[in-house]
Design a protein around this nucleic acid. Structure first.
Lengths: 335, 335
DNA sequence: GTGAAAGCGCTAACAG
DNA sequence: CTGTTAGCGCTTTCAC
């Protein structure tokens, strides 16, 4: 193994000089810098992570804590995780993956041991058990999601209430007077993740202003569940002509069942989804949708976290502006 | 911050004793052990990861390298990643997530710096650029997938050739004489991941033995691509009554298009999928399928890797036995 | 602009 | 069964 001392010797300088060439924390003459860098390349030197962490009290590692449940929203989670990792690397950080399995104490373990300098929490619930521990730890943290109590954290999330009102406006603008919302699985509401409720609230209140009736139905993403939900909806509200779906898994079942039901999209029924762009584009119909900007959320989260690590940022709640893109699944209400 | 020295002092023992209580590497009297453990709890001591890594040359971190491309197979990847992390924790290891973005040199960086003790590579290609670097590094490594040259590595994968022959046997047994295989997107074959070809080979050779004709078509997982592929298949081979699908994204489009085409599953057409169980269960039809055992692969990979880290395992190629589960999508060939 | 040297907190001989 | 001690490889004062 080649150490910093080896490099120093090879370059004919002191260890500290090599260290400073690496960190750039003091001015080095161009010549010695070249010599050192040459030696580094020649010897194939790589700084030892443990030694560096010990001496500097910085691991250059960010812990990314996955959702406590893994049953939902898989593609978005994956997209966020990859984007977080990619982005972190651009700042010289690596990403440690923490699953829900270990429970909230995983947070304490990784920050308490100095393994991670900071933490990103995904899929934060309204009253998340991980938050008190994180707060105590005093380490920089960014939440993806919006808990009830945000003190001490930066939060990044989509403005789901805004997304809900956008959907209401879009459908109202097309002349729909009765709409139904297909929500996430009941379990998602039960555990109070917040985003699902915020969307419904946004949708409801804007719809009320616009004189549109809304029926809300949580729904599992299976064909069976969707069939039953649809049956109920059309029985209860035969006049429904617009759907808002916030449930990746449910999108295809919905479209497929409407088709079987001889209800044409968008001629008879309009559908607006709140989902990642990929889902909106790859299905059997190109969906009018409000995009969940996974990559953008990850980027913001990482950038903010790095800024906090470097002491250059305060806590903040960042709600990304939703955008509705009109595609093939929505059109004027039938007359 | 509370250090090992603090614990030692509090417990009235030496530092090494505390260290040995923690590691269990030498026998400690029950009394001192209790005293030490009590102090540890009382002070809330957590060993410093950097110091430990430096002193022991072991980070207790496994690097998990994601696929170079992220366009495919997302749910399986996620499932493997989570299972790897969960399993690793049970052995006291954490998992560092490496994306394809950084390129093959990411491997060198993390093992060369001692950041990771070992590496798991996902979605390994036949001639994977990461392998030479890994081999040089001399660190324990497990590949998920099966490259052309396995020397120096343990490989864990499903026996995809076996999966292919199982599908052939199942359909042949039901009386089907002409079958079509819907494969992964052309890009997957182009980059030579191996598993896709192995499945086709297994299917083809067993089908030949059983006197069944096979037509193979790679296919993007979109409705448009599938519609065109189906059109071609039925034009070229009007007698096709069985489908084998190895493409998660393509499953739903296939079923949906067959339905639109008035071809009933399984009365007119039988469908067998090679996919994760979840995909087989959650679609519009419960699919007869050969399961891709993501969790099991992850478990084997981690267990083997830990054994290698501890010097208790040799390189080995582990091919998991495929199992075909009959569900609602396959039945006797029409007469 | 560069060096010397004191740790960072832990592990693992070595010694008893 | 336990203590003493010498590093592990790097960062960062302090000194010139």
């Amino acid at each position: 193994m080649v150490t910093l001392a080896d490099v120093a010797q090879h370059a004919g300088v002191s260890a500290s000089t090599v260290s400073y060439v690496l960190s750039g924390k003091r001015t080095i003459s161009e010549v010695t810098k070249q010599r050192v860098e040459h030696s580094i390349r020649e010897l194939g030197y790589l700084p030892n992570a443990g030694a560096r962490a010990l001496a500097s009290s910085r691991s250059n590692i960010i812990a990314l804590m996955m959702p406590l449940r893994t049953d939902m929203y898989v593609p978005v989670m994956m997209e966020i995780a990859i984007a977080v990792a990619t982005n972190a690397r651009e700042h010289g950080f690596d990403v440690l993956m923490l699953t829900g399995e270990e429970g909230p104490s995983a947070v304490r373990r990784v920050v308490g041991s100095g393994l991670a300098d900071a933490v990103i929490l995904m899929d934060v619930e309204l009253d998340d058990a991980r938050l008190p521990l994180l707060r105590e730890s005093g380490r920089p943290a960014v939440l993806i999601g919006l808990p009830a109590q945000t003190t001490g954290f930066t939060c990044v999330d989509l403005d789901f209430a805004g997304a809900g009102s956008l959907c209401a406006e879009h459908l109202a603008g097309l002349g729909h007077r009765e709409i139904a919302m297909i929500g996430e699985a009941p379990a998602v509401y039960e555990r109070k993740t917040g985003f699902a409720e915020r969307t419904v609230d946004g949708l409801r209140s804007r719809a009320r202003e616009l004189g549109v009736r809304v029926l809300h139905r949580p729904c599992e993403g299976t064909y069976a569940a969707m069939a039953s939900a649809l049956g109920q909806i059309f029985t209860e509200r035969p006049g429904v002509t617009g759907f808002v779906v916030q449930n990746e898994q449910a999108v295809e079942p919905l479209l497929s069942l409407l088709r079987q039901d001889r209800r044409a999209v968008p001629e008879d029924i309009s559908v607006v989804a709140v989902c990642p762009e990929q889902v909106a584009l790859q299905g059997s119909v190109r969906l009018t949708s409000v995009t969940i900007p996974a990559r953008e959320m990850a980027r913001r989260a990482v950038d903010h976290l790095i800024a906090k690590i470097e002491g250059k940022a305060d806590d903040e709640v960042v709600l990304l502006q939703p955008e509705l893109v009109t595609r093939a699944s929505s059109g004027p209400a039938p007359v």
